[in-house]
Nucleic acid binder design. Sequence first.
DNA 1: CTAATATCTTAAAAAAATCTTAAAAAAAGG
DNA 2: CCTTTTTTTAAGATTTTTTTAAGATATTAG
Lengths: 222, 222
Amino acid sequence: MKVLIIEDDKILSDTIKQCIEKQYNVEQAYDGYEGYMFARENIYDIIILDLMMPEMNGYEVLEKLRSQEIFTPVLILTAKDSLNDKVRGLNCGADDYLVKPFEREELLARLEAIIRRNNGFYVKDTLEFKNLKLNLKNRKAYIENQEIILQGKQFDLLEYLIRSKNTIITKEQIFDKIWGFDSDTSTNVIEVYASGLRKELKKYGYDKYIRTLRGVGYILSD
Amino acid sequence: MKVLIIEDDKILSDTIKQCIEKQYNVEQAYDGYEGYMFARENIYDIIILDLMMPEMNGYEVLEKLRSQEIFTPVLILTAKDSLNDKVRGLNCGADDYLVKPFEREELLARLEAIIRRNNGFYVKDTLEFKNLKLNLKNRKAYIENQEIILQGKQFDLLEYLIRSKNTIITKEQIFDKIWGFDSDTSTNVIEVYASGLRKELKKYGYDKYIRTLRGVGYILSD
DNA sequence: CTAATATCTTAAAAAAATCTTAAAAAAAGG
DNA sequence: CCTTTTTTTAAGATTTTTTTAAGATATTAG
């Protein structure tokens, strides 16, 4: 689970990070514009968004994201307690609202609630694409009930492809999602893993569904 | 998005370039006259313009551009902090003003603000010309919902044509926009790509909308 | 109408991106 | 600390895109 915190107060941002870093993989942006640029990659599972920020405030970030069809769940975080702000935030497509100062427990509870709401009451533990099934709990993959052995990042890549099926994902998105944007690994690893993944899937003729879009990235589609 | 930096201090110019090159396609000019010559091509989305330069200063560049109907948004960049300069700059038609030294965040925010002001709040991700649609996100083109396969620069050319529909674009503009003014490729490539593009569009009878203007360039129009 | 010039069209050559391996390096597990 | 597994690097093979070049075709000026 990847969480993005968009908060200009670095101390608060770090506090939030500490609260949740045990359960989530956290990244931080320190102003609205930076946050928008990060979020636009569409690689996060939740965004924690402060409203009051210089230049580009939380509403603008949220509006802009939604207008670009980035529907990552957003938890708005602000000192403002007025009804107006709540309404405006929720109208822009925020999923929940948390008023500063807040308690660690409440933050965690709301994050979980958002996740639950978005993935159904029970957190999904399988993903499917045609007859290919991923069990996210034990990280095993099956095609027609035959298990295929996938190592760590091979599984991650396939999971990301299936989650984004019929949508192009760029190399940069893949890299940022799986390796992290601050990794200093060469992007050639993506090709290595794509190649390995195709090799495994080929046994069942599923390699052909992963298409390369030269100069752009990959797409999994029928 | 193409940005032109006109700044005689090469170190500062490079610093700015580094700040923004992840989001923008950057070109640099190292004095006012050179900057003016570049900008006159009208192929940039934003110009970052230093005021204090030898030979031809920022005001002159800006005035001259505006007098020639080049309305590329300009962000003025200068050490001067006096009200007079700001007023003069904005009177000449600058879009915003940034005082040195500045922070990366502020620069990015101001660029973004200018873009927003000029393109409206939402950045478009599709372009249309009659029944021809370009999806800029996944770089696919459709005519009447039939996908047409366009390779990299073919797509770029069609995108530029549609963005400039009903306006003549010269070969030089096309070359500088797509290949970059410092490319040492022969301009014959433009004809090659125009030819290939027409070939693809011909299947749907859309080739006739790309007209050649001998000695000048091309125009896409009904 | 003819010569000069510009553009179109093709196919081949060159360059660039991606694929595929295998080995080296790093991390995990005992 | 050693073994095993996973991740990363690197280099050659393959595929695709880009560029070159040359002949064909069209346009314009005289």
